[in-house]
Design a protein around this nucleic acid. Structure first.
Length: 185
DNA sequence: TGCACGATGAAC
DNA sequence: TTCATCGTGCAC
C-alpha cells in the first residue's frame, strides 16, 4: 500500500510538470488516530507572482510567505472563513509557485467525501497547524504508489478564479480522466 | 482600527 | 442563487 516518499527534488521542478506528476500519487497524513491516505486525482497549478490567480501575485505577505519559501513544503490556508485548502510549494525558493490539491480517491483511513479542496482537507485531518510543514518529513508527505496505473490526464481552466483575467482561462487544472472522485468535470 | 473579500460547500 | 464565517491585507 505504501510506496516511496517523494524527495525534495520532485518538487523542485517546473510547476506544471509537478502538478501532472502528482496525479496518481498518495497523500499520507500520519495522525495520532492512525494513518490517512488518499490518491491524488485532481490538482491545479499556480505559477508564481505574475499569475493573477495565485495568492503570491499580491506579493510576499504573512500568509503567502510559505509560497515564497523552498519547495516541498505545505501551504495550507483558510478560505471563506471555514474551509482549509492544501498546496505543495514547487520550484526554487522565491519562485512563489504551488500546486493546489483538489480531490482524492480514498485509500486508507478516510471518512466523508474527498472531492474538492475543502472536503479533501477535512477528510485528511489537515488544518492550518500543518501550514509550512516539510513534506519530506514524517507527518505529512506524498508517496509514489507501488504500482501506478496508466491514466489519461484532462486539462481544464482552474475553478473559482474568474477575477484573474486571461490567467483564469489557462488550462492549469489537471485531473484523471474518468475518475469518479474528481470534484467537477 | 475597520472592512471588503475570497483557489468552497451546502442548502434552497 | 444565496449564504455561512473569519483571517488577511490594506485603506483610513
Amino acid at each position: 500500500m505504501k510506496g516511496t516518499k517523494l524527495p525534495r527534488s520532485f518538487y523542485d521542478r517546473d510547476t506544471i510538470e509537478v502538478a501532472r506528476d502528482l496525479l496518481g500519487k498518495l497523500l499520507v497524513h500520519e495522525t495520532a488516530g492512525g494513518r490517512r491516505v488518499g490518491r491524488i486525482v485532481e490538482v491545479e497549478a499556480y505559477l508564481g507572482e505574475h499569475d493573477l490567480a495565485a495568492h503570491s501575485s499580491k506579493g510576499r505577505t504573512e500568509r503567502t510567505k510559505v509560497m515564497f519559501g523552498p519547495p516541498g513544503h505545505a501551504y495550507v490556508y483558510l478560505i471563506y472563513g471555514m474551509h482549509c485548502c492544501m498546496n505543495v510549494v514547487t520550484q526554487r525558493e522565491g519562485h512563489a509557485s504551488a500546486v493546489l490539491l483538489r480531490a482524492l480517491e480514498p485509500v486508507e483511513g478516510l471518512e466523508g467525501r474527498t472531492q474538492g479542496p475543502g472536503l479533501l482537507c477535512r477528510a485528511m485531518g489537515i488544518d492550518r497547524t500543518l501550514n509550512a510543514v516539510d513534506l519530506t518529513a514524517r507527518t505529512l508527505y506524498i508517496a509514489s504508489a507501488r504500482q501506478e496505473p496508466d491514466i489519461t490526464i484532462v486539462k481544464r481552466p482552474r475553478i473559482g478564479v474568474d477575477y484573474a483575467g486571461h490567467w483564469a482561462r489557462r488550462l492549469l487544472r489537471f485531473y484523471v480522466k474518468g475518475n469518479a472522485f474528481v470534484s467537477k468535470v
